[in-house]
Write a protein that binds this DNA or RNA. Structure first.
Length: 165
DNA sequence: GCCAACGTTGGC
DNA sequence: GCCAACGTTGGC
């Protein structure tokens, strides 16, 4: 299993939206590196830190799980969509996405300051200066650390049993 | 709203 | 294939 961090602006689509929807297609990614992660590396069951960007505060707002992979992002073909890509065609799609499933919403957002206060997390992609990727991998040790410190209901568990994964 | 960082585009 | 110009991201 792999771990990911995926960014969304809560004004556009928040963890509350995902709670209501239960599932969502992660459409609109128009960055090749981010696309390649979704296309080549994500597997069903991978866990996702749902990150609110451009928010008050910005940070990790909840947890999701990859439920379908290697889907063609249909918005690239829709000339009415803000994600329309005139260089893509149904016979040669450029952009792919995954579907994610809601798992939980945190009682409070784990802010960037929260994360930076822990030396074990200093290497996290999302904390690096100038990083702009909207989909990025999270190391196992980083995910476990975050899980133990902020997500696990008992804070004493060291596995993911409570999530029924 | 500012602006640093970084990805993409396109002329050459 | 270089690289300047431009657009976007996203914290602040």
């Amino acid at each position: 299993m792999n771990f990911w961090l995926m960014k969304s602006e809560p004004e556009v689509y928040s963890i509350d939206n995902l709670f209501k929807d239960k599932f969502t297609l992660w459409e609109g990614v128009r960055n090749y590196q981010a696309r390649n992660f979704m296309m080549n590396s994500m597997a069903v069951g991978d866990l996702v830190l749902f990150y609110h960007s451009n928010a008050n505060p910005s940070g990790i707002a909840g947890l999701a799980k990859v439920s379908r992979t290697k889907l063609i992002d249909q918005t690239q073909f829709n000339s009415k969509s803000e994600y329309f890509d005139p260089k893509a065609g149904v016979d040669h799609p450029r952009w792919f996405c995954v579907e994610v499933e809601y798992l939980l919403k945190l009682k409070s957002v784990i802010t960037l300051d929260d994360l930076r206060a822990h030396t074990s997390l200093l290497k996290m992609g999302v904390l690096q200066k100038g990083q702009r990727l909207s989909v990025m991998p999270v190391a196992l040790n980083e995910f476990e650390y975050i899980y133990k410190n902020w997500i696990s209901p008992t804070k004493s568990r060291d596995n993911f049993d409570s999530l029924n994964i």
